[in-house]
């Protein structure tokens, strides 16, 4: 059987090992992120319906300004060749296009509207005390697993 290699997306680009306390900074960044998600109501099913019904600017403002700030920061990193804390060159793996980019996004868009959550907010909903979102997370893990099993039989 012909197995296509499947690289990990959004990955660790570093070649330096990290363990113990060095990993705490990712928990800290996650905490800030989780607080932001709740305080700006990004984890709200209502806010997602509002966005998809063009009834509020809020979510467009959040995503739009996040992209603008991300874009400017990444341009600065590139322009001034800013290194990571441990002195490595910042490395960005190019995103690859295939048919799945479109087909998968259709499935994801449906799921986003139904659950009112993309993957980050699922975790935040659980933390905020919505225990039913544990089922949403299990569904998402199940969906990921089914994709992994069917991968080589799906159009890409």
């Amino acid at each position: 059987m012909n197995i296509t290699p499947s690289p990990v997306e959004c990955k660790n680009e570093s070649n330096l090992p990290e363990r113990g306390l060095a990993l705490v900074k990712y928990v800290a960044l996650g905490i800030l992120f989780g607080i932001t998600f709740v305080k700006a109501e990004i984890i709200s099913w209502f806010r997602i319906q509002e966005m998809f019904h063009f009834q509020s600017f809020h979510m467009y403002g959040v995503i739009g300004s996040a992209v603008v700030v991300g874009l400017i920061s990444m341009q600065l990193i590139r322009r001034f060749n800013i290194k990571t804390l441990s002195g490595e060159e910042v490395y960005i793996t190019p995103k690859k296009y295939n048919k799945g980019t479109v087909i998968g996004s259709i499935f994801f868009g449906f799921g986003w509207a139904i659950t009112g959550a993309c993957p980050g907010p699922i975790y935040a909903q659980i933390g905020a005390g919505f225990l039913v979102s544990v089922i949403t997370l299990l569904g998402a893990i199940g969906g990921t697993f089914v994709y992994g099993v069917l991968k080589d039989r799906l159009p890409h």
């Binding site: 799945g100 994801f108 998402a140």
Partner: peptide
Amino acid sequence: GGFLVGFGTRYAG
């Protein structure tokens, strides 16, 4: 809904 999110995001990368 969660299944669609998990299946779709990984399919889309």
